[in-house]
Design a binder for these strands. Structure first.
Lengths: 204, 204
DNA sequence: GTCTATAGCGTGATAGAC
DNA sequence: GTCTATCACGCTATAGAC
């Protein structure tokens, strides 16, 4: 019986269906009614598994961090031993992923996160991803340096800024992957040069 | 007669009331019905002056660029003659304004701009603001350099990234203005160091 | 414990009367 | 130029069937 969602299958089916909608039609296309329709279930059914649309998105956002973090970690590993080259690869991979999976990226870092920031589970799930950022920056500035949280946030903000502005078509690239890579490349170079100078000046 | 909106007063009243809502309750609080209620006018009345909510927001977004650009220009002027110090002031002013006027900032650079990017008037209105960015970067790299569009976008992305992440509480600052300024300061320093290195390497 | 049916309310948008 | 319906659709809560 395909539609026997009793015994807990519906919860996972809702998560899967919502992710499908996010990937195919974008984050804004998500509505609990659309999810219910896709699963041929009543409009109220999802509410027995998620108290609100926000709760559902919070779970999905928490899940999404794992895939994102793993993607970044792999890109860093493939970049070799030099910490600055690894940082460059991190920025490049961050932007690429954010634009190729725009729905999921917005799910994790979009404007609705102001409300989702109140979910401890979401915040906790995002921590490993930020740890990758921290480690990447720490590897550049060297051990024993004083806190480099400002640098980490700078790296993050730059990667997020490119992803957002290109994703919103404010920086026009015509979805040209090469143009996006070039922009990431320039940004990463500036970042690396800036961090080098910052470290040499003993500001960190 | 206070409520004689005939003869075109209503259009301006709608623009004013919407901006009031954006400033006081945020961009998400805007609805044409709320605007109509505030003006004690029927729910359908706004539609005779703006074909859709998007059209209304597009007009406001176009208007908002002027104030933002002027704010940035003033901050740059007050920073003295050194182009790098002016760039630092630009970043600082950008982030401050974006967070102090978060509703207006999202109106100009938020996620809904993907749709508004199709409005030629909006794109045109945003150009002067981007010109300020271009000139600020050009003043650093010096005249006669080849195109520095990558650097401009890098500066913009960093400023936008900080504004977004702090605004969405992803980078926690507790609305502490000093913490925000410190972050902008570090980011601007990295940016300046990176651009200097970029220029010295002859990459621009 | 799981799902359906229904209803309340807010929103964007349109048609036709004044 | 404005108003009074009216429709379609979204989120959410509640009552009740199984």
């Amino acid at each position: 019986m395909k539609r026997s969602y009793h015994h807990g299958d519906l919860r996972q089916a809702i998560l899967d269906a919502t992710l499908d909608i996010i990937d195919s039609d974008g984050l804004d296309a998500v509505s609990l009614r659309a999810v219910a329709r896709a699963l041929r279930v009543s409009e109220a059914a999802p509410y027995h598994h998620f108290a609100s649309k926000q709760d559902l998105l919070a779970v999905l956002a928490a899940n999404a961090y794992a895939a994102f973090g793993q993607h970044l970690a792999e890109a860093i590993s493939a970049a070799g031993p030099d910490p600055y080259e690894r940082l460059r690869a991190l920025v490049q991979a961050y932007v690429r992923y954010g634009l190729e999976s725009r729905g999921r990226y917005r799910l994790m870092f979009g404007e609705h996160m102001l409300e989702l920031a109140t979910y401890p589970a979401v915040v906790a799930a995002g921590r490993p991803t930020r740890l990758i950022l921290e480690e990447s920056v720490a590897a550049c500035v060297g051990p024993g340096r004083s806190d480099s949280v400002g640098l980490e946030n700078t790296v993050w903000a730059l990667a997020h800024g490119i992803t957002s502005l290109v994703g919103e078509a404010e920086i026009p690239t015509g979805s040209n992957a090469d143009a996006i890579d070039r922009l990431s490349e320039v940004a990463a170079s500036v970042l690396i040069g800036g961090i080098r100078a910052h470290v040499q000046a003993g500001l960190c």
